[in-house]
């Protein structure tokens, strides 16, 4: 039984291969259907994004619990808040590149300030929209939401953690922004059920020299970098910091005490994301190790597919390994 009295669903590990193949949109769409079965007060709101966000099944299965506000992101948030204040558990789904930024003021004044129990899901975060260009990239969404009091920000790293994060949202008190990365070929990092708790980072593998602190689907690349370093005799810890706000400071305390170099890894601007959050916390330490922020930097991107952009920004496993090796 969960805290809200729902029978704990068995982790859908049988779906992981399919979810990995199809990417986060499908994990999200399928999970929302499961959530609706488990939580009678759960509803979904979207802004003309049904097929893109893989919400067609939800709309057909729960037509009375699915609302489309049209292409109107400000109202996506305010309408969601109104539903939440009256005791429903709304999940609002939008593009990460549009939703936190365009209705940022609704996210702050209505959702954050009234501390409503609502979840906002941003799909296609980072630069996965590649050829569609910078208007569709989400490079600043963590920065926007993280600055709003009361908000929790979650960046799951793989199909099962995405599924479990959304379930955690249905139990969570207060507003949550779930930032989804990881398209088709979404690596399975957690093949078996595991304990996912909001605000509790996971030490994915231990290591004493470098610590990669990662958010989102780049966890796979951080682990790949750790593998490469291991071959060179450098011990690398990898932390899945799936919750960017609130940070797991106990985990960071261990990292600062035990590792010689911290490399934060994220598909986000170098300003205001995971790297910024860790640096803010680290500012209180006189003797914490050096930190490098592996990110998309502070720039509009060139156009290109996701693989091209990851390479260009030094976010592939070999790039991350080289960065760490040069600085440790």
């Amino acid at each position: 039984m969960t805290a809200r009295g729902v029978d704990m669903r068995k982790a859908p590990t049988d779906r992981l291969q399919e979810w990995s193949k199809k990417g986060h949109r499908t994990v999200q769409g399928d999970t929302l259907v499961m959530l609706a079965a488990d939580y009678p007060d759960m509803v979904v709101i979207s802004a003309d994004l049904t097929p893109t966000a893989r919400l067609t099944d939800f709309r057909e299965t729960y037509p009375d619990r699915f609302f489309d506000v049209g292409i109107a992101e400000q109202n996506l948030i305010d309408f969601t808040v109104g539903l939440a204040l009256e005791g429903l558990r709304p999940f609002a789904v939008g593009l990460a590149g549009i939703v936190p930024m365009r209705p940022a003021e609704q996210m702050r004044a209505a959702l954050g300030y009234m501390n409503a129990n609502a979840t906002v899901i941003g799909i296609e975060a980072g630069v996965r929209f590649g050829p569609l260009g910078n208007t569709h990239y989400a490079m600043d969404d963590i920065a926007v939401v993280r600055a709003i009091p009361n908000f929790t920000v979650i960046c799951p790293s793989d199909p099962l953690s995405t599924h479990k994060a959304l379930y955690a949202c249905a139990e969570h008190e207060g507003p949550v922004y779930v930032r989804l990365t990881g398209g088709p070929g979404y690596p399975v990092m957690y093949p078996e059920d595991f304990d996912f708790q909001i605000g509790r980072a996971i030490e994915y593998r231990p290591g004493s020299d470098v610590a990669f602190v990662s958010s989102g689907s780049l966890l796979a690349d951080a682990v790949g970098a750790a593998d490469i370093l291991e071959g060179k005799g450098i011990s690398a810890r990898v932390v899945d910091m799936h919750t960017v706000k609130p940070l797991d400071t106990e985990m960071l305390d261990r990292v600062f005490a035990e590792n010689k170099l911290v490399v934060t890894v994220e598909e986000h601007s170098s300003i205001g994301g995971l790297g910024g959050a860790v640096a803010e916390y680290k500012a209180g330490f006189a003797d914490a190790p050096k930190q490098l922020i592996a990110s998309l930097g502070d720039k509009f991107q060139k156009l290109g597919d996701h693989t091209f952009l990851m390479k260009l920004n030094g976010l592939t496993a070999p790039d991350l390994a080289a960065l760490a090796e040069a600085n440790v």
Binding site: Q74, G82, A84, L88, Q106, A109, Y113
Partner: peptide, 24 residues
């Protein structure tokens, strides 16, 4: 009942509240 002051948002939230009443 509702925080307001940033114009327009109170009204939009009220619309959500009215929909919630219909749902329930």
């Amino acid at each position: 009942e509702v925080t307001s002051g940033s114009l327009g948002n109170g009204f939009a939230v009220a619309c959500g509240m009215a929909k919630a009443a219909k749902i329930k």
